[in-house]
Write a protein that binds this DNA or RNA. Structure first.
Lengths: 145, 145
DNA sequence: ATCCCACTTCAAGTCCACTTGAGGTCAAGC
DNA sequence: GCTTGACCTCAAGTGGACTTGAAGTGGGAT
């Protein structure tokens, strides 16, 4: 791995579409870490791009940076609570199901000619499907940017 | 619909698991609206619970309150941009696919005996799958709470 | 009639994930 | 040798979604 493999923060930013400030922020939260520095400049190894993909993915599932960092700490032992991960996976199954319902609802609203969706039996049935589960326990949900 | 059908904000809160303050906040953003008041107290119709389920669902997909309110304004015409809705649905398809990958990754990490996941070919393949798409265009992602 | 307590308003505060700004460093090209 | 531009640090600011606090109101049970 000679230095030609190393990426400047600007290159990582360009390839991932993230702002350099975001990468520094993630570093301050312990999510990523440059392989080294050239002068002051952070130098990243290519596999950091995969780590970043993973982080984006987890964020899109509604996990906070703090949560994600517990699985992928750049430093320290890669110790994870396997039970917790399995629980998250199960939670994702439910989230995915909910999102599928939402997607169906959106498509329905886009196509349905009924003037008030609340009156469309099809829509109401989707909503009823949606309600089972949505109000349970997990207050997990993410914000968009 | 006599007044026995109407719900106090506290009952809606209890049934949905949301704080009353959240319901007032959503009202201030135009997402929900009480059917009326008894004295000062807001009185909600039961169907508001469905609306709330819908909002939670959309939030979990990463939509902002402002975005959601454009489809489900409590007041005004339920006018929606059908093309935009279809686009959102397509976006959700992609999100769902990403989440499925993340779920698989989490399960893999939970079960894989390899000490460093970065060295597990299985994990790396999942990551590669994940990377296709994650860095494209849509910077949409939500935060959790 | 009075008390309680769930409700009310409104302004300010909190948390998270960044972003911005001010002021500084340094390698490379002119 | 000097400027340029991409990088650096650190502190403060932003935006979204709520939450909290202070001060007040009013319906229902005792």
């Amino acid at each position: 791995m000679d230095q030609t493999d190393l990426l400047d923060i600007g290159e990582v930013a360009a390839q991932t579409g993230l702002a350099a400030s975001t990468l520094r922020h993630w570093e301050s939260e312990g999510l990523i870490e440059p392989a080294g520095r050239r002068g002051l400049r952070r130098q990243y190894v290519a596999s950091t791009l995969e780590t970043i993909a993973h982080i984006r993915l987890a964020q899109s599932a509604g996990f906070s940076l703090a949560e994600i960092s517990t699985w992928i700490r750049a430093d320290g032992p890669p110790e994870v609570d396997r039970g917790a991960l399995r629980a998250k996976a199960d939670e994702l199954d439910r989230t995915i199901e909910h999102l599928a319902i939402l997607r169906d609802q959106l498509r329905h609203v886009a196509d349905c000619p009924a003037p008030r969706h609340a009156e469309c039996p099809n829509f109401r049935q989707l909503l009823r499907r949606a309600m089972a589960g949505v109000f349970d326990r997990d207050r997990r949900s993410p914000p968009a940017r």
